[in-house]
Amino acid sequence: MSTIDIQLQHRIEQFYYREAALLDKREYQQWLLMLAEDIHYVMPSRYSPQRDIEKRGQESFLALKDELESPSPATAPMREENIFTIALRADRAYKTNAWGFNPPARTRRIVGNVMIEVSENEKEYSVNSNFILYYSRHRNDNFIYSGQRNDTLRDYDGQLVVARREVILDWNVIEAPSVGLFF
């Protein structure tokens, strides 16, 4: 890895740490500023499909993408959001009567395994990262989410923003009351 790469790696990791910190501190309005105005935020649903027997013996036999329902007219992804719907969720957290946020979410995000690919467009990076999100609701109502994020980060006048995010959770049957949190 060249020096530049290490700097870039550092820069992007710091971006994610800051993002996680803002979200855990419930500073969602600050966090919104880390998103591109044209952000595309999706969460495919995940199921157990029948595997293609022709591919047996090959890695493609277990291709992750075959388990995902990413947005297309023929699928039912769990989330597909834009800046408007994300902001709507963020605003709700500060209302007295948004009962999903009362008491407010106690969360802890750990982001790691950050892998960067520089795309043809110099101003954009494809970044994969993994996360563990611990979520504590009422009393002892506690949940752990694990998953992957496939992002496109855009360098916008020297400032990074998330232009695209795909969140892949590791459940078939979801064991939490909501996957509407910010991942």
Binding site: P71, A76, M78, R79, R92, G100, P177, V179
Partner: peptide, 25 residues
């Protein structure tokens, strides 16, 4: 269809803003 889907998965289903309140209830 895709526009109608917003009425589903933004408000209902496991990420739905309304349903997360229903399931809380």
């Amino acid at each position: 269809k895709e526009a109608l889907r917003i009425n589903y998965n933004l408000l209902f289903g496991p990420a739905g803003m309304l349903e997360e309140e229903d399931s809380e209830a």
